[in-house]
């Protein structure tokens, strides 16, 4: 597996935290690649049937990336935010490819794939959701971010609020407004 220089991650995280979009992009890339490779590596080791949550993979990735660095206490939450986005990209990408390949089933899938298939079972049009999120971002980026952090990152209102620098109540309102928007969008 490709090793990511630990210093890179730390640096990128800090720069992301400071609002450098380019750093964030680079980080997503790193994380995205890493996740895919991990999924591939695990394909051989773990048997099919046991399901691992996608977020568990993200965590595993985070641990591996950060363990080599030192003292990531502060950056952990930024990583969470970043990983939520990475997760979103991974899932959407997967959905796109699935659509393109018309879902050619493979006999043995990696755990990520496994989890993604499970996710598809939720009867949610991920691509439509992605489109909705992009639209929502045009209206109100913060609302879209709250959805990202909660839905893809599994955060509470409070945590999402902390990452975005807003109160819990504001985060909760943003969530409901975004929900109304996305529901409307998906119903079309």
């Amino acid at each position: 597996m490709q090793e990511i220089p630990p210093g890179d991650v730390t640096r990128l995280l800090r720069r992301t935290a400071q609002g450098e979009n380019e750093a964030a992009e680079r980080l997503y890339e790193l994380l995205y690649d890493h996740l895919r490779e991990m999924a591939a590596a695990q394909r051989a080791r773990r048997g099919a049937g046991d399901t691992l949550q996608p977020t568990a993979l993200v965590n595993e990735a985070w641990i591996r990336l950060a363990q080599n660095g030192n003292g990531e206490w502060r950056d952990r939450e930024h990583f969470l935010a970043v990983s939520a986005r990475a997760m979103r990209f991974v899932l959407v990408d997967h959905a796109r490819r699935s659509q393109a390949l018309k879902r050619k089933p493979t006999a043995r899938r990696g755990r990520l794939e496994e989890a993604l298939v499970q996710f598809e079972g939720r009867a949610l049009d991920l691509l439509a959701l992605e489109e909705g999120l992009e639209r929502l971002t045009e209206h109100d980026e913060r609302q879209a971010r709250v959805v990202e952090l909660r839905f893809f990152g599994g955060m509470t209102y409070e945590e999402a609020g902390q990452v975005l620098g807003i109160s819990r109540a504001t985060a909760e309102r943003a969530w409901y407004v975004a929900r109304a928007f996305l529901r409307e969008h998906l119903d079309r």
Partner: peptide
């Protein structure tokens, strides 16, 4: 053993 494994858990 660091806090890392708590990722995804409520933030400290």
């Amino acid at each position: 053993t660091l806090a890392l494994t708590r990722t995804g858990e409520r933030l400290l």
